[in-house]
Nucleic acid binder design. Sequence first.
DNA 1: ACGAGTTTGGCAACCGGTTGACAACGGCGC
DNA 2: GCGCCGTTGTCAACCGGTTGCCAAACTCGT
Lengths: 340, 340
Amino acid sequence: MTEPGQRRSGRAGAATIYDIAERAGVNPSTVSRALNHPGRVSAATEARIRQAADELDFHANPMARALPTGRTRTLALVLADVTNPVVFGLIRGAERAAAAAGYTLVIAESQESGAVEAATVERVAPAVDGIVLATSRLADDEIGAIAARKPVVTVNRGGSASANVSPDVEPGIAALVAHLESLGHRTLAFLAGPANSWTSTRRWDALFAAARRAGLHIVEIGPNAPTVEGGGDAYERCEASGATAVVAYNDLMAMGLIQAARAAGRRVPEDLSIVGFDDIFGAALITPALTTVRADLELAGEHAVTHLLALMGEGAAPADCDELATELVVRDSTGPAPTR
Amino acid sequence: MTEPGQRRSGRAGAATIYDIAERAGVNPSTVSRALNHPGRVSAATEARIRQAADELDFHANPMARALPTGRTRTLALVLADVTNPVVFGLIRGAERAAAAAGYTLVIAESQESGAVEAATVERVAPAVDGIVLATSRLADDEIGAIAARKPVVTVNRGGSASANVSPDVEPGIAALVAHLESLGHRTLAFLAGPANSWTSTRRWDALFAAARRAGLHIVEIGPNAPTVEGGGDAYERCEASGATAVVAYNDLMAMGLIQAARAAGRRVPEDLSIVGFDDIFGAALITPALTTVRADLELAGEHAVTHLLALMGEGAAPADCDELATELVVRDSTGPAPTR
DNA sequence: ACGAGTTTGGCAACCGGTTGACAACGGCGC
DNA sequence: GCGCCGTTGTCAACCGGTTGCCAAACTCGT
């Protein structure tokens, strides 16, 4: 006679709670309880079960667990461009916070396109418990629609549609304007990023306000691609603006601008002062080393994930976001304004 | 009388095949067939089902699907350090190839530690269909153990334990040695990476062989941390070696070395020529711009994923890996050897 | 009009866990 | 010795798909 209830005995695959149950002489559900609800079963049985689990090198199948609970212990981080150095810190911080909470991080790239981003989110959403949208190109209502289905935290993308963590640009920008003013600059140019970039708009607004307060002239040039090439391409328009100091939307553009300016025979900072944002890898390496407004993106990534977990009812929200203040890093790309 | 078989009617969550079945007046299994096995059901019913699915905005639950099939349509990419610019290309290439095949890519970081890497793989393995191990710190037998359970492809990590894709260092190194020799260098130093780095060993072996063939002297300095700091820390030993040209294990170290040399008042390349590997972002930005041996890591990432998919029986293996040949990029950090 | 052969769709088991309901059990006070 | 209560383990349903097997229905030739 054949044994009844014999599930795939001898199969190669991973051990299941049924294997453990058999080995420990208990019911599968008891195994589940012993492993997940400490105290629910007697200490003796729990010990027996744990030992059997160890011997069998048991690892619960995440999919099987996710099915009834609906929780996958996976978070998604959606980025515009993985190769942009700005996001390294974000990735690392988010990865660390996720791993610390026992979550796995899925990284998805939207390639700077709203349409791709929407499709990516659509694809990834059903398999994750929450989503971090970094520098999203999505419209407010699209974000709202996603947030209605899954917990969402945005990074560098304000609006009421969802929770948001963004470095506070004010301190850095205030310091920057003071720095430039003290160097004698009277006319500034802001090299804007992409048209629909919330961050670019925010930086421009803050810079504009600070410049006006200080009585400086300021113009906006853009929109531009937020890349080294985008910065280089805008060089002529910067010169045409008559500004003695150019603040680029990000370090990548500032670097492109430095290269274009030098290629055109202009000296930086003697003829033109250039400033970036983010303090990415390479900002200190380029000649002249870039003056920039730094934000601690690693911390931002960490906060975003902590926030997301809090939204999901896991752990508390991060204390205060004052640590996310930006600061000015003065290097060699800014100098006294040239005398006319 | 209450209707039988009524599953969670009216619940908010995502639509299921049961909802579709009800709406189209067929059995759930028919819905599954219509959606996944074209031709298995009549065109008329399939159309009715597809329309119902569209109206309900149906997306199959990945977990539920993964349970019986065992396939998650997810791949893992395990990296030593996400913030190392070398891996950007890898990530982007792998992401692209995975997305093209309808797979999701999970990125996990091992922080340059074999123990962390093993734990990471352990954690992530049950939820993915295959694993790409990039610049692994794992021992051959550990990799073998993983490969026995899941399809594995390594990048920049040879050995017979698993399939491997690595750029071919020979062409780039041959060109490099020829370049240095023509500039009059007679004594070379290689600034090694971490002790257990397969890539570092490989580069050293190839460089050593090429140098010997050319009749040049060569010494190895190391091991060192594969970072900017690691490169800077090794500066004194480079000087002490008497070499007129230093080849660093990677660009990061070369950059650190350049900074340290300049800080010590040495001119690059007049007093010392410096070469890197990988051609990362920033290599062209630093002053002097770095001469380096470039590998197309983006393509390597793509190949690795294609290879992995082939291992999983999905699509064919990539044609030939000749495209992965390295090439020398000559910039400004190499020059004629100083005359004694 | 009838039987053979082919579609087409339904039934039910299954993947591997989780969990509510419940029964068996043991200890306790009286 | 009895009833009561708290503990511990079992049963069975369920999450949302997939798939082997089978029967009904439909095709077509004769």
